[in-house]
């Protein structure tokens, strides 16, 4: 059992190291993540929204739909906590 776990971990680490060989170098300005939409955000954000903080502009304006989903997740997690730990009389006396 212990051997199997370490075998799985070894395979996982080797696969991940193999995957890193095709990733871009650290701090490469021409990396795919840095050339697709992010230059547009950086260039247009100030004149579009008047907000110097680009993270806020992306978070609340360009990707507001994503943020709305995250907010729903957080509030749902709070409700789930309340419901999980609710004291139900008929249930609690039985166990």
């Amino acid at each position: 059992m212990k051997f199997l776990v370490f075998f799985v971990l070894g395979v996982f680490a080797v696969l991940m190291f193999y995957a890193t060989t095709s990733l871009p170098d650290r701090g490469d300005p021409a990396a795919p993540a840095n050339v697709y939409v992010s230059p547009d955000y950086i260039e247009r954000s100030l004149e579009d929204t008047g907000t110097p903080n680009l993270v806020t502009a992306v978070l609340a304006d360009y990707r507001g739909y994503d943020t709305l989903g995250e907010t729903i997740v957080i509030v749902t997690a709070g409700l789930a906590c309340i419901i999980i730990l609710l004291k139900r009389k008929d249930y609690d006396t039985k166990t």
Binding site: D48, T49, G50, T51, A57, A60, D61, T67
Partner: peptide, 15 residues
């Protein structure tokens, strides 16, 4: 621009 600035502010307060 001002409306989007204001909208970002209100959304931040909501978050």
């Amino acid at each position: 621009v001002d409306l989007r600035y204001l909208g970002i502010g209100i959304v931040e307060v909501a978050i």
